[in-house]
Design a protein around this nucleic acid. Structure first.
Lengths: 392, 392
DNA sequence: TGACTTAATTCGCGCCGTGATCTAAGATGA
DNA sequence: TCATCTTAGATCACGGCGCGAATTAAGTCA
């Protein structure tokens, strides 16, 4: 009904077209001005003007010629990977990892800080991040003036507002203003988001979600979440916590979830939930490591194990079907370490289970795929937040 | 990531600003150019130019003066209700209703055609619609050149594509190209959408959803659906069937739904589902009319009735909680005849049940309200589709 | 070497939004 | 009554914009 702040002045128009060209070059690889004319819908004259500006800024560079049969050769253009750099930070249960990427998303440097269990104070994490920034910049020999910003993936719910505030029960964080804490130590632009969401963003940009305008990355690990992309943009809702798929109810009055509610999807298909159900069915778990335990469960041919896996597929299929019905996406990508583990063996069954719960029409329009990136893509995805702002 | 077709030429810029001003006047009531300057963020000069154009077209008219203390009085402007007309059509189980509205959404004429049970042939419905268009135009004395278009709310899933195709199992419609059928009889612009969605749209524009940018209208009647508004725009997904909330699973392996799946929300909180559960619990239903039966059930003080109502609140609360977690909306409006019936007596319990299933943070950010418009707002909402296109 | 082909740039035109300036239209007060 | 003040709205000049047409650049080919 009432639409947001749109283009107003003729200058915004140019900015918009600049962004269109830049995006086309970033995602469409090297291209000649000629090809850009077709890809962007702009006129050749405008493409010429805009690219001249981008060349002058140094954002793009020439990248060789394409010989033609009888005419002037086309000059290829591409984004200069060295024009700017982005840092991605993965704040996880066991470590803080800081990675420096160039614009081509090639990793240039990395720093790792172990977190001791139950030692997750925000101040400590902030110190690690700031130290990591210094380290990776020094290691790669990149100056601060070339930095486009720092993206940070954190656990829990990130409330986007004037300043991002984080709620993460597993860390004991309640309304932690991580951005403000970091602001004291750096002047680089900061982008904070949920780590599952940044991982999903990586999958959407560089993994199985490439090119889809309406896609959902369903992340299944210890926790369960989703990154919902509508019309090419990650949907965040009014305060940024949209996509809490793991805590949607799939069994009213069902299993208790660690969030306190009953019957959440996460209580059934999250790693803990799966292992818990296995133990209740008489299965024996021989290790403390969830990942090892889940892999073993999937290998196990016992009746109890097969039953638990079958049920897990069914629950997850219901959850996926709900996404299909509510969002009518063109693609769903199943990711997260547990999702990948399960999906590698049972993707057809998962598709079939989703089809059982979804309506026929939207189900036909969608494909369910496995994620292509490892579960370590949190930092990469966090860096894409920075790139996204660079591309306007 | 890749964003859609944005403003390109300097002409689109003007069109966009024209739309901004028009929308501000449409939703912000009469306003002076002065006030428009503030409301739109445009400069006074531009507002002057744009309004001059709109006045010349006849889209807006002057609407009196506001005297000031010592200066030139402000001239109020408003959209001319007679500048254009929109027709809204409600294709329901028992009737086809055609209504003519002016731009102020005042009803100017109406035509009604009863449908005999199980006589829902698309050709027949199309004939009724075309006849209704002729009738209301003649009755109101409005010429076709003043018509902005015809909006049509239909049951089932509307697949938006090159031509809208409708799938409605209750009507026995499978891939019915209603637009194409009507195209043979009229040249007016046509807008086809799901009836529940148009009703929701009416609620969002003129009812309890007014002004919200992230809102969901949850419609509970015989069927159950939702109209999801993200950033001021109804979300449709890749082929327009997004929002099929009624067929999301809330109890894996639960009650069979008429869609064929097990455990759909609709199977529990749709009118049929509620009455079915009541019958199973030993309740006696004395009428064939679902609406009367449900009202009686809500009045009934028997233990069985109370139990069924309580469970219904719980299931619906779970469904609402899922919406809160997935979409993080700022407002949820509960509508539909059954939703209103239930909500009038049990809204606090419903809110409480939703809170039990939703995460605390997003739940705090949202309010759950009852719809303000009656369940007969399908045609009104269908007409808003036309107005929406008029406002660009 | 000159004709041909195709890519990219340049130019002139019609628009755009904006700040500064100007005009319109009332109130005020002696 | 009439000059003065105040505020709303219109107008103007300017810097930009995208585009189609014309022009220039840079090759191939015979």
């Amino acid at each position: 009904m009432m639409s947001g702040p749109e283009r107003r002045t003729v200058r915004d128009l140019r900015r918009g077209n600049r962004a269109i060209v830049l995006r086309a070059l970033y995602f469409g690889g090297p291209a000649s001005r000629q090809e850009l004319t077709g890809a962007t819908g702009l006129s050749a004259a405008t493409v010429s003007n805009v690219t001249a500006g981008l060349l002058a800024e140094g954002a793009i560079v020439e990248a060789g010629l394409v010989e033609s049969d009888g005419g002037r050769p086309r000059v290829l253009l591409r984004v200069d990977p060295e024009h700017g750099y982005a840092i991605g930070v993965d704040v996880g249960e066991t470590h803080v990892r800081v990675e420096l990427f160039d614009l081509a998303m090639t990793e240039r440097a990395k720093a790792d800080y172990a977190l001791r269990p139950a030692r997750h104070e925000a101040q400590l994490v902030a110190r690690h991040i700031l130290a990591g920034i210094d380290v990776v910049l020094a290691e790669a020999g990149v100056g601060r003036e070339r930095m486009l910003g720092v993206g940070i993936g954190v656990p829990g719910i990130v409330e986007h507002g004037p300043a991002a505030v984080i709620h993460a029960q597993t860390f004991g964080w309640e309304s932690v203003p991580l951005g403000t804490l970091l602001r004291a130590g750096t002047s680089l632009p900061l982008f904070v988001d949920n780590g599952a969401k940044t991982m999903g963003q990586a999958e959407l940009w560089f993994g199985a979600g490439r090119g889809a305008r309406h896609a959902i990355v369903a992340l299944v690990g210890s926790g369960v979440g989703a990154n919902i992309v509508t019309d090419g943009v990650t949907y965040r809702g009014v305060t940024g916590s949209a996509g809490e798929w793991g805590h949607t109810t799939v069994v009213v009055n069902g299993r208790r979830c660690r969030c306190g509610a009953l019957g959440c999807l996460e209580a059934y298909v999250g790693a803990e939930g799966v292992l818990g159900r296995y133990a209740e069915a008489g299965g024996v778990i021989t290790t403390d490591d969830e990942q090892v335990a889940l892999a073993a469960l999937l290998e196990d041919g016992s009746a109890a194990a097969r039953q638990v896996v079958e049920e897990t597929v069914s629950y997850l299929g219901a959850g996926l079907g709900n996404l299909v019905n509510l969002f009518n996406p063109e693609r769903i990508v199943v990711g997260g370490w547990a999702g990948l583990l399960l999906g590698r063996r049972h993707l057809p069954a998962l598709r079939e289970a989703a089809g059982r719960h979804a309506l026929a029409q939207p189900y036909r329009q969608t494909t369910i795929e496995l994620g292509e990136l490892g579960p370590d893509a949190v930092a990469l995805g966090a860096a894409t937040l920075v790139i996204e702002s660079f591309l306007q």
